[in-house]
Simulated assay, not measured.
Amino acid sequence: MASTITKIPTKSLLKHLISSSPKPPVSRFFSTAENRTQKLERIADELLDLTKLERCDYSILFRLKLGLNRYGPSVSGVTSPGASAPGAGSGAAETKAAEKTAFDIKLEKFDAAAKIKIIKEVRSFTDLGLKEAKDLVEKVPVVVKKGVAKEDAEAIIKKLQELGATAVLE
């Protein structure tokens, strides 16, 4: 059984699908369904006539209008009542400080005599090669490790301070 494939232009196919769709059984819906169908058909025809660049711009605009942009949810005027209450700002700052779980370790300065020991220590907790660790240490002040738990970060800072470096938790 050989099948014949006929290439139908997209506009014709869309019109065929819309016109062959079943109509609602109740006669009072015919006029609104036909109006909606004509409107959707017109919109579909206009979308098909757009160039690739115009389609891209349209898709971005459509996502923004729906609040589906990739940068997060759309900002609406609705806020929680607690956030707009006076004095709530200080409580929010305290909870944000308490919520912080990942810290950065910043190497601010070190003794020149202890440079080799500090490079070795930086290599041990960053998994960097010798050259990368040396370059990192020489760029002081620099963040040597990001996103570390507070307990681990304090242990690393203590080791660096014992070697003669000044390191801080950020």
Rank of each mutant, 00 (worst) to 15 (best):
I156F: 10
G87F: 03
E54R: 06
G82Q: 14
K115M: 13
K150H: 09
T10P: 01
P73I: 09
D104Q: 07
K100V: 13
A167M: 09
I43M: 09
L61Y: 05
L163W: 03
L40P: 01
I157G: 02
I43E: 12
T6A: 06
D57T: 07
I157S: 03
A88W: 10
A44N: 04
L169G: 00
S124G: 06
K7L: 13
V26G: 06
S74I: 06
A114V: 09
R36N: 14
S19L: 13
L50C: 07
K117S: 12
L47Y: 04
K7R: 11
E154W: 02
I8R: 06
L17S: 10
I119D: 08
L128H: 04
K100E: 10
E154G: 00
P86H: 08
G147F: 05
L48T: 03
D45H: 12
E34K: 13
A88V: 05
G89R: 12
V148T: 12
G67P: 04
I116T: 15
V122T: 05
M1L: 12
L136G: 03
D135W: 04
S59T: 13
M1G: 15
V137T: 05
K100T: 13
R36F: 11
T95P: 00
S90E: 10
K146R: 14
E41D: 07
K65G: 08
R28E: 09
D45E: 15
P24N: 00
K134V: 00
I157P: 04
R63A: 15
K120F: 02
K109G: 03
L128K: 15
A153Q: 00
S27P: 10
R28C: 06
A133Y: 06
V122G: 02
A149M: 10
L68D: 08
T37S: 12
E54L: 02
D127P: 01
R42Q: 15
A114T: 10
S74Q: 14
R123M: 15
G91K: 15
V142W: 01
K7W: 11
L64E: 14
P73R: 15
G89Y: 08
L48M: 13
T166S: 11
E138C: 00
I8P: 03
A83G: 06
M1P: 09
K131V: 15
L14W: 09
D45A: 13
L169R: 00
E154I: 00
C56G: 14
A33L: 01
T95G: 01
L66F: 06
M1H: 14
L163C: 02
G91P: 00
R63M: 15
V142F: 02
E162Y: 05
S80E: 06
G77E: 11
R28V: 06
E34C: 03
D45P: 00
A112V: 11
A2V: 10
S84L: 07
F110T: 10
E162H: 07
A113F: 07
E108A: 02
L66D: 06
D135C: 04
